[in-house]
Amino acid sequence: MTTPAPLLVSKPAEPLALGVDLPMVDQPAVPFIEIETLRAKEFIPAAKEALGSLIAEQGQAKVIRPVFNWAGRNSLFPLHWGLACCAIEFAAAFGARWDAERFGVVPRSSPRQCDVMIVNGTVTWKVAHKLITLYEQMPEPKWVIAMGNCATGGGPFRTAYSVVPGVDKLVPVDVYIAGCPPRPEAMLDGILELEKLIRERKE
């Protein structure tokens, strides 16, 4: 019987997120913990013991933050809503061919369970205040992806009387995805871009 490979909490020079091979940025040296060999009850004391001296030395934010970022970027829960055409490609990305869930991306219907809002379509002035409400209902930390040309800058409807020329007029946007609509690959690429941003997140 082979022993399973240990899951790392943090270890420099080893990629943690599946598929993202960025060099680790400004990571403190954290002791190696074999989670698989620990029971849940034993995990927290062990982690405290291992991290405690480090936290005392370097400060809590610097040590916990990479762990927090690692967990956050591998379980991005986007808001489940469809604005326009891009919503169909958004749905296609969760279909059998692209399977976005392998990146930990699971759409949730309640904004209170979400940490990323994918604005997948044309935003009109009529829906603008509803979009802001949904954004404010999402718990911190939260991100916004503007998917497609309409959400980025109005797209083909830029001159229309009822269309917001870009969702960044309403909420801060972290990642823009070009395309009308973007292919599912492009949407997944945008999510990986967002993971890079989260990886470098400090405060």
């Binding site: 002035w125 009529k126 109005g154 830029r158 001159t159 229309a160 009387y161 009822s162 269309v163 020329p165």
Partner: peptide, 17 residues
């Protein structure tokens, strides 16, 4: 008589709602 404009001018017309 309702003309389409670039968004910057248009916001005045639509923003009030």
């Amino acid at each position: 008589s309702f003309k389409l404009h670039e968004p910057e001018e248009l916001e005045v017309k639509t923003r009030h709602v």
